[in-house]
Amino acid sequence: MHIDQWIESVSPTSVYALIGLIIGLESLGIPLPGEIALVSAALLSASGSVSPWWVAACAIAGAIIGDSIGYSIGRKGGKPLFERLGRKFPKHFGPDHLATAERSFQKWGMWAVFFGRFIALLRIFAGPLAGALKMPYWKFLIANVLGGVVWAGGTTLLVYQVGKVAEQWLKGFSWVGLVAAVLVGAGSAWVLKRRAAKAAAAYQEPAGTAEPAPAAAE
């Protein structure tokens, strides 16, 4: 059963708890589909089954608490923790993933925690890596809270509004509206995928590469 079908099958109170738990565990450093769970719950709220405000509140709480626990774990475990995780879970914590996340921290500093909310790779690394790199907690906390509110709260309310509009649109245009919605969604996903690929390629370029100097004339 997919996570969206699972969410639809439980009670509203359970939905709130599950959203907070899934996003909290993902933020802590466990690779779970937090974004899929959040979007599914937000779409469910558009149908009136659950409250978008409670979905947003639980998602924000899960994001902030999970990242804070991840920060504490990373601060105690340090980089050896990531090396052990890389050996056990190379698909999620391999050297390439860690190097990409570290470059993001070098480039953005504390704001890597904020922007990491919007990037799947950084979302599971941000808290633990900030702790391992000994980022001052007050800086981490500011970026953590802002990122949690903007990402979790903003995503919930945006998807809720889109869901309400789409529901009315599909009622009026039947299959034509459905086809148009699918095309728009596919186009948006393609654009986002291309941008993400370009960003990943840029991060993976070796730092400090330069053309070799010409040989001196004899």
Rank of each mutant, 00 (worst) to 15 (best):
I3Y: 07
F93Y: 15
P33I: 09
K193Y: 10
F82Y: 00
L157F: 15
F125P: 03
I19M: 07
A59E: 09
K76V: 10
L133W: 01
A132M: 03
S14E: 14
A61K: 06
Q106I: 08
K79R: 15
S14Y: 14
F89Q: 01
G20W: 04
R103W: 03
V162Y: 09
V15M: 13
G62D: 02
G148P: 04
V176P: 00
F105G: 00
W169D: 05
A42H: 04
G187C: 06
V159N: 06
A99E: 15
T156A: 11
M1S: 12
W6D: 03
Q204C: 06
L21H: 06
L38H: 05
A166Q: 00
F114S: 01
Y203A: 13
L170K: 03
C58I: 03
N144L: 01
Q5L: 14
P31E: 06
Y137F: 15
L44K: 07
A126E: 02
A186T: 01
V39A: 13
L183W: 08
I30D: 02
L98H: 13
Y16C: 00
E83A: 11
A41F: 08
P206V: 12
Q161Y: 10
Q168G: 14
V15C: 14
P31W: 07
R103K: 15
L129F: 08
A41C: 03
P52A: 11
P212N: 08
